[in-house]
Simulated scan of single mutants.
Amino acid sequence: MSYALNRTRRITVAVAVTAALAVGATACGGTTKSDTEKEGGSAGAAGKADPNAELKKDLTIGFLPKQVNNPYFTTADKGGKKAVEELGSTFKEVGPSSGTDTSGQVSYVNTLTQQQADAIAVSAQDPGALCTALKQAMKNGVSIVTYDSDTKTDCRNAFISQASAEDLGRTQVQLLAEQIGNKGEIAILSAAQTATNQNTWIDYMKDELKKPKYKDIKLVTTAYGDDDAQKSFQQTQGLLQEHPKLKGIISPTTVGIKAAAQYLSGSKYKGKVKLTGLGNPNDMRKYVKDGTVEAFELWDPADLGALAAHTAVALESGRITGKQGEKFKAGDLGEFTVGKDGVINLGKPTVFDADNVDDYNF
């Protein structure tokens, strides 16, 4: 991975170039660093982390979620904003309004690079679609942190994982299996078909289902709601029409599980078809209380955004470079260790049910 720490500000480019590149170009050729910066850069690849380095202030940290009007990302980015401002820097959120707009994400990466952001925290729509733009940003000294959904490892400096991908995939199967008595047909209601995090979790779900104790559970299909409430609602309806013997649904997306719960709560399947996955307590509370959902899980997305912010500032300050084994403190969140391939795990997922769902507000 290559990026520059302790860099000077980039050369200001002409407004005309900025405007042209903001309209979806796949590389930011208009923004270049000085020859001195180029010669002295790549501290992350060649340099050594200094855990005692002074934290930089007055940085600009851009957050680029998959979808700006998604309640999950609203919560995550608010956490990022709070952390950025507490660290003495400036927070900026940009992003598409659609949960499948990969070209829009590319355009926003280019724009943030042109606007001389010091670091970008991005939840990638697609594992490879952003790479050209992200690599160009890194060449221009921008630290790249992915959160929630990763890109390819050479296209960023660090990835903030909600929890271990394996834990998330396996525990969702375990939750549903317990609810259906380890027997029956199940389906998965995912987000976009290209979503890196969703597909990784689903791979672990399928692997978990290979265990002998799940021999009487059959995964019949995976549907995609594209993180769109209406489409996810319709997909839930379609699953139940196509598979009348369905006993349970796993939806590893906050939009999907809420839409599925909404459909189930007003249908004849309420309480009969079990639903679990990843959801926000505020979205799911009423469905837990009315008996539609027994239990679901998630991490605190505000903490996820905050950790992304702390990581971005730590990278910019030289406290970490994204190499395995490096340690850094992230405020009240505690100390974290960079894992293999620059992955930083937030922690274990929390299971929410009738006993504890009122204890959380996000």
Rank of each mutant, 00 (worst) to 15 (best):
I186F: 01
A133P: 12
F91R: 10
P349K: 10
K135E: 11
E85H: 04
T32G: 07
G41P: 13
G248K: 08
K323F: 01
Q105M: 05
K92Q: 11
T151Q: 04
Q179I: 04
A124I: 09
F328Y: 15
A124N: 09
V106W: 01
L298C: 06
K211P: 03
I61S: 08
Q179E: 15
G225K: 15
D207W: 00
K340T: 14
T102F: 01
V343C: 01
F159D: 08
S164R: 12
K82N: 07
S251C: 11
E242R: 15
G88P: 11
Q234Y: 00
D332Y: 00
A14V: 10
P349I: 14
I320V: 15
D77E: 11
V94D: 08
V357G: 10
N361C: 00
L175Y: 02
D358P: 08
S251Q: 06
A137Y: 03
D227M: 08
Q198L: 04
Y360V: 05
K152G: 01
V84D: 11
V220H: 09
A27S: 13
S161I: 03
L189F: 03
V293D: 04
Q115C: 06
D35M: 05
D35R: 12
V122A: 07
E86L: 04
P51I: 01
A354N: 10
Q179S: 14
L278K: 13
Q114A: 07
Y360D: 13
H243T: 12
T12R: 14
G95C: 10
A53T: 14
V343K: 11
T113C: 07
G238Y: 00
T26G: 07
G104F: 02
D148E: 08
H243W: 00
K57N: 07
V293H: 04
Q162V: 12
G318S: 09
K211Y: 02
